[in-house]
Computed example of a mutant assay.
Amino acid sequence: MSVKNGAPYDEGNIFARILRGEIPARPVYEDEHAFAFHDINPQAPHHVLVIPKGPYVSMADFTANAPDALVVGFWRAVGKVARELGLEEDGYRILANAGTNAHQEVPHLHVHIFAGRPLGPMLMQG
């Protein structure tokens, strides 16, 4: 079982509930490894979340504990979503927050794909 700061994975988090079909989402892509859907509070013209199908709280947890096929399949799904949305030509940003200091809001690994306008610097100085 995956853990975050010593606590077990929270099966009640919103992304776990979306994967179980308990909460609706606007899907973009789905396969046996990943589910991609539009963010409900988009930060760019294109803002899609991609989540692995499994109880992983962070990239460190996922890469240490997920089966190899899931890790590879998840990253292939991220690339496929970017291609299918036509984001390759103008560019896009992939972001995954992990933990409190990174402002991870949902304790389930998720990757944001942002595109559709110039995104500016990655981090503000300060």
Rank of each mutant, 00 (worst) to 15 (best):
I18A: 10
L19K: 03
L19R: 13
L19M: 11
L19S: 08
R20L: 14
G21D: 14
G21C: 12
G21Y: 11
E22F: 09
E22D: 15
I23M: 11
A25M: 09
R26V: 13
R26E: 15
R26P: 06
R26T: 15
P27C: 07
P27A: 12
V28I: 15
V28N: 00
Y29P: 15
E30Y: 00
E30R: 14
E30F: 05
E30I: 04
E32G: 14
E32K: 13
E32D: 14
H33I: 13
H33S: 14
A34D: 03
F35D: 08
A36G: 02
F37S: 12
H38A: 11
H38K: 04
H38I: 02
D39Y: 01
D39T: 06
D39P: 06
I40H: 06
I40R: 07
I40L: 14
N41V: 09
N41T: 11
P42F: 04
P42A: 08
H46M: 12
H46G: 07
H46S: 12
H47Y: 08
V48Y: 02
V48D: 00
L49D: 00
L49A: 05
L49C: 02
V50T: 07
V50M: 15
I51F: 04
I51M: 02
I51H: 07
I51A: 03
P52D: 10
P52I: 03
K53W: 07
K53P: 06
K53E: 11
K53R: 14
G54D: 01
G54F: 01
P55E: 10
Y56F: 14
V57G: 15
S58W: 08
S58T: 12
M59Y: 14
M59C: 09
M59L: 13
A60H: 15
D61V: 12
D61W: 10
F62K: 05
F62H: 02
F62M: 05
T63N: 09
A64V: 03
A64R: 10
N65H: 11
N65Q: 14
A66L: 01
A66P: 03
P67K: 11
P67Y: 10
P67R: 12
D68S: 13
D68T: 11
D68M: 10
A69H: 07
A69W: 06
L70S: 07
L70E: 09
V71A: 07
V72D: 03
V72W: 03
G73I: 02
F74I: 14
F74L: 12
F74H: 11
F74M: 09
W75T: 03
W75F: 15
W75Y: 13
R76Q: 13
A77H: 00
A77L: 08
K80L: 08
A82E: 06
R83D: 06
R83N: 06
R83G: 06
E84S: 08
E84F: 02
L85H: 04
L87G: 00
E88S: 09
E89Y: 00
E89F: 00
D90F: 06
D90P: 01
G91S: 09
Y92I: 07
Y92N: 01
R93Y: 02
R93T: 00
I94F: 13
L95S: 08
L95E: 12
L95Y: 05
A96P: 04
N97V: 04
A98W: 04
A98L: 08
